[in-house]
Nucleic acid binder design. Structure first.
Lengths: 149, 149
DNA sequence: ACACGATAGACAACCTGGTTCACTATTTAG
DNA sequence: CTAAATAGTGAACCAGGTTGTCTATCGTGT
């Protein structure tokens, strides 16, 4: 059935993300939501603002603001007014945020290795190549309200 | 980056689904939501009930009921009490629902052909094979609140 | 024969992650 | 120095889920 392929993509995504967050919870980050790691990455080392973040992710500034607030409450980011422009509030990833980010990276690399072992490194590389060929460039702009769970 | 793979899966899913619904809208089904086609398929030719549907999809009976109601309002399904058990209401796909389903199938098949043309039929088959190896059997139970947009 | 437990559906309140509209405060440009 | 643009925030709303509670009907055990 040709309708199976998109479902398999979704299933693959969810399987990986669910695994990631189960392991992250075990490693001391039970409050991480699927989108959080993604947003932390999007913030970057320089910090950013809600408006900027919204543009990067392809969502409204209000949605970005809400997410930042949630992230702030669980201690993954902090906000400080920009002295050079007191309208702006610079969002920065905290140490705890970085810890989550680093652990996510490790878990994802392990996951990737498991895929390589199961499928063969060559097949996995070919798969990644094919996917890059068929999907848009910009990995950030998922342009999806509620991309995952 | 090993974190790219899950994102590519999501992107691939969304790309296909967005394309499908853009084309479906052009063909006279502008109200179809991503989940609708999926649910229509899950209902099947025999019809089903909210409880049954919920079990199939892995969501609560209330969620299934809400979806059925939405589908009913836009004319894709209809409900009738089961004469053999007046508690039950059998949900059936209407002609309009079937029209959407048939068109979806055609669009998905075209999409699939395009992927085959771009990647090569052999590569696409290998990709599908790899995905089946790495994802759960049951395509219905996505077990995801809000799997797509 | 009938009471009791299980089942189907519906309603309400709530959650998450989005949306738009409206507003204030500040900055920048003409 | 005023006018437009921009950053942030709040409110109301939506979709698609959740749980809890309730009624109506069905089916079974004594």
């Amino acid at each position: 059935m040709s309708s199976e392929l998109p479902l398999r993509f979704l299933l693959a995504f969810r399987t990986m993300i669910d695994e990631l967050h189960a392991e992250l919870a075990r490693q001391g980050h039970p409050d991480m939501r699927p989108m959080h790691g993604f947003v932390l990455q999007a913030i970057g080392p320089q910090g950013t603002t809600a408006v900027e973040l919204g543009r990067t992710l392809g969502v409204s500034k209000q949605a970005a603001g809400k997410t930042v607030e949630a992230l702030e409450q669980i201690g993954y980011v902090e906000r400080a007014v920009d002295p050079a422009d007191t309208r702006r509030k610079i969002v920065k990833v905290t140490d705890r945020g970085y810890d989550a980010l680093i652990r996510s990276g490790e878990i994802l690399r392990r996951q990737h290795r498991r895929w390589a072992e199961t499928l063969g490194a060559d097949r996995l590389a070919a798969l990644e190549n094919d996917l890059r060929k068929m999907t848009p460039e910009n990995v950030w702009k998922l342009d999806a309200p509620g991309w995952f769970s």
